[in-house]
Design a protein around this nucleic acid. Structure first.
Lengths: 129, 129
DNA sequence: TAAATTCATTTGTATATGCAAGTAAAATTA
DNA sequence: TAATTTTACTTGCATATACAAATGAATTTA
């Protein structure tokens, strides 16, 4: 099980990295950017929950996107908000189409029904663990 | 899917790390050592296949186990063989019981039947990707 | 058999991620 | 309201892994 789940994640990672190459972002960066565009001002904590990554990882992802001028961060008090820059927003269509392609790429391999079931199962099990 | 599989793998990793703490090895190191004990002289390439890791990762894992005097490597020509040291062999019972405990820990959470099915499904899907 | 190719492994470097500790603000408590 | 605790995030450091290039041996080809 340990190696099975690891292997699946690594294959997915590879598939995803290839998929997102067109926009020059890693999968995590891409998804984070999508979220910042679709929910401007979203906070690191929320991002961590939704992307199922640790807060520290989220910080690192945001830093990189800031360097690339795709998002900006504003801090008031202890809260931080992440907004897309115009340059970031411009990427939205491409990001969405990449995301759709990625979903398609494994859906066509696994079949629509099976894909949904697998994701559901995996999530259910992750919650249980 | 991307984050789902990643999240599952990370949870598994955490569970496994905890589980293997008793023997002072990371999960990958532990499984590699088990294989070297059960199949003395096993080669890196085989290990890579079975553990579903890249050859370079296998090299790094072996290096660490060598440092800890748990395995030794002999090289003849282009082939390398990995053997457990006596110190490594001594760990076998503990390794096996850790491994059993780990399997139990997620089997009890998920149920026996469901665990087997999930592993099967994941492997099938990984192969397809 | 000399040259080219393939194979098994290792090495250099890079990415993705997290934990534990640190910081600073906000909320709670005394 | 001063002191404590909690919250939200960031930073330093560590681990797990892979890719691409390097090495050196074995195999195939010409």
């Amino acid at each position: 099980m340990y190696f099975a789940s690891g292997a699946l994640a690594r294959k997915m990672e590879k598939l995803a990295i290839n998929n997102w190459k067109k926009v020059g972002l890693s999968p995590s960066h891409a998804y984070l950017l999508i979220m910042a565009i679709e929910e401007p001002g979203i906070q690191p904590g929320t991002l961590a929950d939704e992307l199922q990554l640790s807060p520290s990882t989220i910080t690192r992802l945001i830093e990189k996107l800031e360097e690339k001028k795709l998002v900006i961060r504003t801090t008031e008090g202890k809260l931080t908000n992440v907004y897309p820059t115009p340059k970031g927003k411009d990427l939205h269509p491409q990001l969405k189409s990449c995301s759709a392609e990625f979903n398609e790429s494994y859906t066509t391999i696994l079949g629509k029904e099976e894909s949904t079931r697998l994701v559901l199962n995996i999530n259910r099990i992750t919650d249980k663990l």
